[in-house]
Design a protein around this nucleic acid. Structure first.
Lengths: 339, 339
DNA sequence: AATTGGCACTGAAGGTTCCAGAGTGCTAAT
DNA sequence: ATTAGCACTCTGGAACCTTCAGTGCCAATT
């Protein structure tokens, strides 16, 4: 049975261990915190915690260290995420307000988060379904392919290659571009599909097949769109906290470079609005010493994506949660303003 | 005085040390290579090499390790860079030929280089002065600013924010967009300046100031353009060769993340056509254990930029030089083909 | 003059032993 | 349920030794 006091003990173990990097023992606990009981009592509680697999002793005679489960319990017990200080918040605001387009905003966001938390920071590109088409550019690529570049009103730019069933020349492409643009300009991304279907039905045969190919390519592009990209900053921080990883950092860096695993994880977390924490093996087997704290932000029309920090399980969860939430809030705010 | 044989000794010291990670001693040298002389003689040569600051003993009774200068001498003495094997080359070609636009090509290039060499790989974006304007998109950003997006025929996309002196509305922007596009489409980037100056001179007063603002922004954009970006892959490799760095990897990762230092170095190297090597402190004081092997590639009309691999000074220079050169050659070829 | 065998010397790496200290678990007393 | 007391365990560091790879130097040889 894990008493309430035992849980308090767990809390100070996590806090002290995160602060000192040292396993914490019963004696240090009674010295540094006023539990009003003796070390022996604390030891009994620790035995219970160990029984419940919340803490763990590296060896017989060292203090205790939280397990993944211990961190989990600690994080779940944080009811109120203490917000950042006023100066920090206004700094965030000032810094992010200066940003110009999406890429710039996200670039600033990751840097900011990384500096705030001293961890690796990541932002996932949002899908912007409320976003509308500003321009579609088509560039020839051999005789039956073209590069399509989709520019949206939010300033995002996306490329794809379109394969045509038939041969094309510059004038085909020019007229296709003109027709498609006049049909699509100002249309929301969600409507691209129907508008192009409509256009295809009224066009002559040759144009129809071209429009069809382009349509398929564009909706793929819009679908898969940005959700599959991650902006990352602060990888050097990983090196600085290398001591907190029992094994090599290589798998962690692989995950960051590959992005796929992380994006999948983000998708799994897709619901919560306040911060979500994934600890150690909850992430993946080869990310055993790694934790991710993430929050979702909204990019205008109900579309959400996530931003996160990644670091050792032995991280300052309250701080990171506060930072991630604050930044997510302001990013949402900025993206909501200029719609 | 450093005899010819002493230089041969230097060569095998570098080779063996790179292969084994172990300081190499006189005895191992006579065992593994047929110099036809005794260990004592080798020792005399090594004394000369040490005198000349080409090798260095970590401690009294260990073998020798090349100094930065030793590596330099070794690299300079490589006359013929042994090319890659035929299968490697055709693999490179096949892999790169599949790429679709610039970004894709560079993405593939860094991955390829990183796999080939097991080092961090980087590609510097080229300036594409021969490249031409495909489209200029303008998106409103408040009452006196706009986001301009420049698409070129090579498929590259660049953004900038234009500040206008006067207030604008959507119709201003629309007509500006129309005029600018009809004037610029198909013009080479180098001609943008004169074409817009020309356009400004024939337009009415209000349009003139708008065109002027846009012109200044665009030429800035074209100037500064891509040279200031670096595509990077393979950072995890750095961790894997961590043992080769005497100090922390943090400064190295900082340099990679910041990019500025590296880009400056690239600019300094801007001349050579075959591979250029920078070793240890030749790079920067806090990159003492790091080397960069780079080569320039041409992106069509005489514009050049660089690609490179970065790793510990204790790296396989011949291999890396061959890889960098081969890849640079094929990238140049691809960029030359579809002009 | 260059090369060589011989040899004493050096310093690192690794193993052993010892000690101190931190922390535990258990037990008996409160 | 809590506690003081105590024996026990394990780590980390210091001190020490031995081994060994590799050196520098010297005198002898070619």
């Amino acid at each position: 049975m894990v008493s309430q006091r035992a849980l308090d003990v767990l809390r100070v173990i996590v806090e002290d261990y995160v602060a000192s990097r040292e396993p914490v023992g019963s004696k240090t606990i009674v010295e540094r915190h006023s539990f009003g009981v003796s070390a022996a009592t604390i030891r009994n509680d620790m035995a219970a915690l160990e029984e419940a697999n919340l803490i763990h002793a590296p060896h017989t005679s060292a203090g205790r260290v939280p397990t993944d489960l211990g961190y989990r319990r600690f994080v779940d017990s944080l009811t109120d995420v203490r917000p950042l200080t006023g100066t920090q918040i206004s700094a965030i605001q000032r810094f992010l307000d200066e940003s110009l387009d999406l890429d710039d905003l996200f670039g600033r966001t990751v840097k900011l988060l990384s500096n705030l938390t001293n961890q690796v920071a990541m932002v996932q590109y949002p899908t912007l379904s409320r976003d509308a088409v500003a321009h579609v550019e088509l560039l020839p690529l051999g005789t039956h392919r073209a590069l399509s570049i989709l520019i949206t009103t939010s300033g995002s730019v996306d490329r794809a290659v379109v394969e045509f069933d038939v041969d094309i020349d510059d004038s085909n492409l020019g007229s296709l571009r003109a027709q498609v643009n006049s049909a699509l300009q100002g249309q929301s991304l969600g409507d691209v599909n129907s508008v192009l279907t409509q256009l295809a039905s009224t066009a002559d045969a040759k144009t129809r097949t071209l429009v069809e190919s382009l349509r398929l390519s564009l909706i793929d592009q819009i679908d898969a769109q940005r959700h599959d990209r991650l902006i990352v900053a602060g990888t050097p921080q990983l090196i600085r906290s290398e001591g907190d990883f029992s094994r090599s950092l290589a798998p962690v860096m692989d995950a960051i470079e590959e992005q796929v695993v992380l994006l999948t994880l983000f998708d799994e977390m897709r619901q919560g609005e306040s911060s979500t924490v994934r600890i150690g093996r909850e992430l993946a087997d080869d990310l055993s010493d790694t934790s991710i704290v993430s929050a979702s932000y909204t990019a205008g029309g109900g579309d959400t994506a996530r931003l996160a920090v990644l670091g050792p399980t032995r991280m300052n969860y309250p701080l990171n949660m506060a930072a991630v939430e604050a930044v997510a809030r302001y990013v949402s705010q900025i993206l909501g303003d200029d719609s």
